[in-house]
């Protein structure tokens, strides 16, 4: 990562934890995980709480749909690490890699329902332009998405517009396909806390 403190500035206890993760997962600790262990009282502890609530807290959106939103927002931001991580996680959650690839390649022709498609379209607009209109929101609501589901999707969008920026600014190292698969398995089992 671009700051030496994010590569080396951890307490002995945290370094031991990283060594155990490497030992048991047989993969390097992803930079996304390292970042939240650096001075966690400043960012990491509360970032984990928020991201976990958005991605795994109560919602009418299944986890797989929320992981797809994370992958899609990351694709719009062109954030390589997060595209890899959440493409793998969404594909495992759906047990359907082709569906996830189709959404990232062309949202309009992908084999998903109208409610999810309208929601992803709105999140893409918000991520690209920084704003959406009331009419954009009416289009989402008329596709059968409830106001609470819109709020839940906006929380996912906020979590990944934050994480994508940090991944690119700090230069998270892109993992091997096997590394992303291992990370996806962990995120589906344990979440973000």
């Amino acid at each position: 990562m671009r700051l030496d403190i994010l590569n080396r500035g951890y307490s002995p206890g945290t370094k031991l934890l990283f060594a155990l993760i490497r030992l048991f997962s047989r993969h390097p600790v992803p930079d996304a995980a390292k970042l939240v262990f650096y001075r966690p009282a400043f960012y990491g502890a509360q970032a984990k709480e928020f991201t976990h609530e958005a991605m795994r807290g109560p919602s009418a959106w299944p986890v797989a749909d929320r992981e797809l939103m994370a992958a899609y927002v990351s694709k719009v931001n062109e954030s390589a690490f997060c595209i890899g991580a959440h493409t793998a996680t969404a594909a495992q959650a759906y047990q359907d890699s082709a569906k996830v690839q189709a959404v990232l390649a062309d949202l309009e022709s992908a084999p998903i329902g109208d409610a999810l498609r309208a929601t992803l379209r709105m999140l893409g607009e918000l991520t690209r332009e920084g704003k959406v209109s009331a009419q954009d929101m009416r289009d989402v609501l008329s596709a059968g998405v409830s106001p609470q589901q819109v709020k839940d999707a906006l929380a996912v969008c906020a979590a990944f517009n934050t994480t994508d920026r940090l991944a690119d600014a700090f230069g998270f190292e892109v993992l091997s396909p096997e590394g992303f698969e291992a990370g996806a398995k962990y995120l589906l089992k344990r979440g973000y806390r």
């Binding site: 918000l126 991520t127 920084g130 704003k131 959406v132 906006l154 969008c157 906020a158």
Partner: peptide, 8 residues
């Protein structure tokens, strides 16, 4: 990300 969230 907060400005986007609030705009949404």
């Amino acid at each position: 990300a907060t400005r986007q969230y609030e705009a949404g």
